[in-house]
């Protein structure tokens, strides 16, 4: 790692000021991804602004809206009674990610800021448009078994690695942001970006902006939820594909449905069209299969990841069956 300076501002405003002043400064919270990237030479900030002591570590429920502070640890969120009661899907996805040690370090905000796990992004000796814009995408034409089947561009086919974000996009969360120009709210689905021609930008945060928390609105998805994560080993591995499924079923009829996928796109991939096919239907394998077919219509595959399309379809059906407990 390069030498850098380290500051620990006492207030949120001081933290934002510190980043705004210095173009190569970065916030550090858990550090589990940032330090990893710095050790690999992918990032070399000259200043780290430690935000861990800011008062952003809380989980509260007001007017049925769940607020999670940005510095709340992944392990704390997963185990919190309010989360388990009101949004069990979020608890499930968090426990499917990383290890308990990492969940004890990684924060809610940091999880959203994770960079892709694409090998070519991590290895500075090989071209990567996300790391060095204009250098080329090595994954296209390279080893792309783990890569995107939705929303990729000819600039980048990397996927977002988070599990947590799959639940948050499914649950229509809102990202709370503070910045040099004040506070703003970003719908979760609009937080992360598709690669397009600017794969170096993972999200729509502006310079100096700090995630302060997320809000999850009240939802009926407290019973029939399931997160299916298909991976190369039983734990402590990134998803080949993952599916978050949430159903609101009464009288054998699906009143509400949420579906989102991980491991398939540059951002947490919400399946709105597939959800629509389920509303008003009964929770049967045939109806789930229809949703899965709709979900994968826009898929585009590369040399090593064609398996992800049938795997995604089967996983959607399986996750919905598990959620519906049928």
């Amino acid at each position: 790692m390069n030498q850098f300076s380290y500051v620990r501002p006492a207030s949120q405003q001081a933290a934002i000021d510190a980043i705004t002043r210095d173009s190569s400064a970065r916030f550090i919270a858990g550090g589990t991804n940032l330090l990893d990237l710095m050790k690999n030479g992918v990032l070399a900030p000259e200043k780290l602004v430690d935000i861990n002591r800011l008062p952003l570590k809380n989980i509260t429920l007001n007017n049925n809206i769940l607020h999670i502070g940005a510095l709340t640890l992944n392990s704390e969120v997963a185990a919190h009674p309010l989360v388990k009661t009101h949004h069990p899907l979020l608890s499930q996805v968090l426990l499917a990610g990383a290890s308990q040690q990492l969940r004890n370090m990684a924060t809610t905000g940091g999880n959203m800021m994770q960079r892709t796990r694409c090998s070519y992004f991590y290895d500075i000796t090989m071209p990567c448009n996300k790391r060095t814009p204009g250098s080329g995408c090595s994954a296209i034409g390279g080893i792309n078994r783990m890569h995107a089947i939705f929303g990729a561009s000819d600039q980048c086919i990397a996927v977002h690695p988070s599990d947590m974000c799959i639940a948050l996009v499914a649950l229509d969360a809102t990202v709370l942001v503070a910045g040099p120009k004040g506070n703003r709210r970003i719908p979760f689905g609009e937080f992360h970006r598709l690669p397009g021609n600017t794969p170096d930008k993972d999200n729509n945060l502006g310079k100096g902006e700090l995630i302060t928390g997320i809000e999850i609105p009240h939802s009926p998805f407290t019973q029939n939820v399931y997160y299916l994560k298909v991976r190369d080993r039983a734990s402590y591995a990134f998803a080949l594909v993952s599916v978050a499924a949430a159903l609101d079923i009464s009288n054998n009829t699906i009143r509400g449905a949420r579906l989102a996928m991980g491991g398939v796109a540059h951002k947490p991939w919400r399946l709105h069209e597939a959800e629509k096919t389920l509303i008003g239907k009964s929770p049967t394998a045939d109806n789930f299969r229809i949703a899965a077919t709709v979900a994968t219509q826009s898929a585009r595959t590369y040399q090593h990841n064609a398996f992800k399309v049938p795997m995604a379809q089967n996983s959607i059906v399986t996750a919905l069956q598990k959620a519906a407990a049928v």
């Binding site: 070519y120 090989m126 090595s138 034409g141 390279g142 080893i143 080993r233 039983a234 734990s235």
Partner: peptide, 23 residues
Amino acid sequence: IDHRFGRYVNNNYADYHVPVNAD
């Protein structure tokens, strides 16, 4: 190995999967 570069692409414990306890 990405044969174009002659370089390993999963040369770490996250991507080269040694079995974990749950396996």
